[in-house]
Design a protein around this nucleic acid. Structure first.
Lengths: 231, 231
DNA sequence: GTACTTAGTGTACTAAATACACTAATTAAT
DNA sequence: ATTAATTAGTGTATTTAGTACACTAAGTAC
């Protein structure tokens, strides 16, 4: 063990969840490489090195804004990853050399997870970064560095929070139907829920209130729209 | 906002809990200063800067071993504190100058909480550090830097874990009575529990098993001793 | 107006949490 | 040996939360 302290780089990485079309998605940055800048070599979580006069939460907000034009969204720190070799998987060596001065430099990353109302925000790639892309959680490829582990812990935390706190609405439009909310729970928790029991529980929690408005443009009985009470 | 990354120092700080004599205690390092090294100026959580070839968890283990001779104990990362000015409260300026080269240097700290069987380990101060001392959680003075906030979040997490996971035994001797376990819950959660309901719940969880041994040397009916099953 | 689709609703059963009071075993003092 | 003091140990009834389950209602497309 080395007897001297040192000064690693610090980054933040964000696991950004969205829900759309009955699918749980995560926002990934496409890292391209090659002569024509066309060959996709891998995907990574949105992240960046910490700036000098910036708090950790600030950095996470900045990352989401710069890389995906996301602003004012639910954001929560969940774990810090600091293994010595977390950047140095064989698959990442080549890529590291194209982007960083010193591929051996140590980087400790503080991970956040984040919930986005996909109807309100359409991520746009900043020009300097790779393209930001929503990827179905079921179809996420192997990611750069230890981002697989980060994503997987982020997903675990999302599930925990969803079962204990009322955060489901952070992933839905302001106005939503009870069936939408239920599908969200079913998909994230990967289990079927009973419609009547689900609604009974919601009623007891009284966290939502009905609007005087109904669903439109559907080819079946239109559902009552609800919204969250902030009380 | 500064447009350049930088390399702050990284430290780990540990919120170490112990339980003894019906009191929840936390391990603090006494920081002394002055001509005779006798004037106590403040207490701090055990912590140290991260070494070069050391993972975060390793650093936390090292800190506990070096500062308190604690080894092989329950240890869990819970939050990373990175405010720009977290070291720079007015009360800390003087002290910083005596210990660190640059009192303006930024330090980001990864916080752990830790559970200790106090009967097995008696902390001993390493010579180079301040004295390690168990302090009743109710009597903790204002700590150095932002350690008040770290302690307070650590305590919050201890309470959450105690209600959801079976971690109570980490704070008790290997052999314990049900009343001891109940008092531990009562004191940490700061609420009274019903004896019969508490025992009923334990029975259902079947996480403990009775030993063929009874409490000794008490001036009342001796209680059955139990131990945790690891199964 | 018929077929299709999803919305919306109540009741009976089961499991978990709560409220509650007395007897048993030991020590210390007399 | 008896008594006082102290904590250990035990069961039942009630309330609350969770589960299982099936039909009618409101709209669209044809």
């Amino acid at each position: 063990m080395s007897p001297a302290p040192h000064n690693p780089n610090i980054s933040v990485d964000c696991v950004v969840f969205g829900f759309d079309q009955d699918e749980l998605k995560v926002l990934l940055i496409e890292q391209t490489r090659g002569p024509k800048e066309k060959v996709v070599i891998q995907y990574a979580l949105p992240g960046d090195l910490l700036f000098k006069n910036e708090g950790l939460d600030d950095a996470a907000e900045r990352v989401l804004y710069d890389l995906a034009s996301l602003k004012g969204i639910y954001l929560k720190q969940f774990h810090t990853f600091g293994d010595i070799d977390r950047l140095h998987a064989a698959k990442d060596q080549e890529w590291l050399q194209t982007f960083r001065e010193d591929p051996k430099a140590r980087v400790i990353t503080v991970a956040y997870y984040s919930l986005v109302k996909m109807d309100e925000y359409e991520p746009q790639a900043a020009s300097f970064a790779g393209k930001a892309e929503w990827v179905n959680i079921e179809e996420v490829p192997s990611l750069a560095f230890d981002h697989d582990a980060i994503l997987s812990m982020g997903l675990e935390r999302l599930r925990e929070e969803l079962e204990t706190k009322n955060i489901g609405f952070e992933l839905l439009p302001k106005k939503f139907t009870l069936s939408q909310l239920q599908r969200l729970y079913e998909i994230i928790l990967a289990k079927k829920l009973d419609k009547r029991n689900f609604r009974k529980k919601l009623k007891n929690m009284s966290a939502i209130k009905p609007l005087s408005e109904k669903q439109k443009g559907v080819l079946h009985k239109p559902a009552q729209l609800f919204t969250y009470k902030d009380d």
